[in-house]
């Protein structure tokens, strides 16, 4: 079990979360017509041995989508923050204590 420090709910086991894939790829604008951009966004992954930014959603909890920095070599989680960066939710975001 990986404990994930949810910014809203505190430390929770990863089985309360849904994995959402690589958070380091840039999603093209919704009306971007470039197939190459979409191809890179959907299919191309760096697969690093080391820190990996990835999305997790606290589905059995606050339902927030989070960006988690996880070391793929040992599952150590370096940071957790809310994926949404709008002004009203910023006050909730805090870095987990490494």
């Amino acid at each position: 079990m990986l404990p994930i420090e949810c910014p809203c709910c505190g430390p929770r086991d990863h089985d309360e979360f849904r994995y959402g894939g690589d958070a380091s790829v840039t999603r093209p604008a919704h009306d971007d017509p470039d197939p190459e951009a979409w191809y890179r966004y959907v299919f191309i992954r760096a697969n690093p041995a080391g820190l990996h930014r990835e999305f997790w959603q606290h589905v059995i909890g606050c339902r927030q989508w989070l960006v988690v920095e996880r070391d793929t070599r040992n599952h150590a989680i370096a940071s957790v923050e809310l994926a949404r960066k709008s002004p009203h939710s910023k006050s909730l975001a805090r870095k987990s204590p490494a």
Binding site: R18, A23, H30, A83, R84, S86
Partner: peptide, 14 residues
């Protein structure tokens, strides 16, 4: 539902 929340939280927070 999860997908809609994902898009609103990450792609189109505006």
């Amino acid at each position: 539902l999860s997908r809609l929340e994902f898009l609103l939280d990450t792609a189109w927070p505006d």
